[in-house]
Design a protein around this nucleic acid. Sequence first.
DNA 1: GTATGATTCAAACAAACGTTTGAAAGATAT
DNA 2: ATATCTTTCAAACGTTTGTTTGAATCATAC
Lengths: 225, 225
Amino acid sequence: MAATPPAPNTDTRDRILDAAERLFVEHGFDGTSMRMITGAANANLAAVNYHFGSKDALVQAVFRRRLTALNQRRLAALDRLETDAAGEPLKPSRIVEAFFGNALELAADTEQGGRTFMRLLARTYNEPNAFVRQFLAEEYAEVMDRFLGALFRALPEVPRAEILWRFHFMIGAMAFAIAGLGGLSELIDDLPKDDDPARLLPRLMSFLLGGLRAPLPGAATAPTN
Amino acid sequence: MAATPPAPNTDTRDRILDAAERLFVEHGFDGTSMRMITGAANANLAAVNYHFGSKDALVQAVFRRRLTALNQRRLAALDRLETDAAGEPLKPSRIVEAFFGNALELAADTEQGGRTFMRLLARTYNEPNAFVRQFLAEEYAEVMDRFLGALFRALPEVPRAEILWRFHFMIGAMAFAIAGLGGLSELIDDLPKDDDPARLLPRLMSFLLGGLRAPLPGAATAPTN
DNA sequence: GTATGATTCAAACAAACGTTTGAAAGATAT
DNA sequence: ATATCTTTCAAACGTTTGTTTGAATCATAC
């Protein structure tokens, strides 16, 4: 009796997660049916409801499997920066690197499916589905708080609204770049042929830091208020 | 019941377009049903198929109604720049302004629904649906060609791959900023309270130009922060 | 070997989907 | 007023959706 190890048969479960991850990138959440998922995973149609409970719960599981680890690595990197600084103000570039570097590192992994997941995550930033948005917001709450707070302290002379907007811009730039990684962004048909994320990191980072350091708007001319 | 604020007695066709535009932003293409659309438009279920032929054709009509005009304004602005320059090289900042300024101008219009449309367009940059992506790529082909060509000529010393990536980044930054405009980006819960696109333009522009002018990756730099 | 719990399976469920139909209603022109 | 064309309408079409069911299969414990 009892003594049942908490780790059940993970075979079918993992195959479903992998298939769902891949299909969600390709067709979106609403565009991916249970039959597509279980078909691609060589599992029975009822397997998703048995292992996860519902389609929504499967979506959550797909994200949790990798997003939690990514965000913990981000927080750990920020922790390291702050202990190393020992009270001194942090360099904004290091903060940005801690956030986006960890993301691009995961996007560079094509073996374990990190790239697929990051493409899914990047797309989901703009997902309309209310349930998914809500879940993602909760999953990100702490990371946003910590990184925004760090940027506020690192740039005390910059209005917080400006920092918020620029962090917004940076996330958008990264998300769009990653989302189009493996899938060919048809939007710019003349896409750079070398889509190696290892070279994407320095490119994105210098762009982001250039934007972050740009002169504040209205510096020359006074705004309406 | 949800009252339908959109114009009461306009043409059925236009009421459908308005309702679809609004619902597509909120629920996505796959998440918006014909019954939702015709219900919100106070039209019969068969009206969409009668006026547009199919749901896919309706999606195209929603975009064509406003995107064609936007891209023509972009091209006209670029034409004006080039004739004014009379052979002299263009300033990259003017090129960027011609592209993104026209977009943000449309996003600032809350009366005629330009804002709603721009939020939809921004989201659609990351749309998985293959049919929608293909359509959007065709609709953008000429604009991308012209603006990238102009940037190549304006920055002859910068490798084209870098310009391509940075234009990519800029589009991503704009899209993410616009997509979260009316709809509250829950991702950053501490969203800037003033989401007035009229003030977004200078903010975005200085960020974009800062990124565009940033030192190329790999170049030796002396970062100041 | 038999009992017990976990997993798979084919089949069915009601609900929602996009689309089609044919008749009714409205509009327009002669 | 008649004929013609356009638009609306209620109803139904055949599929596909996510989920549930109950029996079959598998693994492990006693």
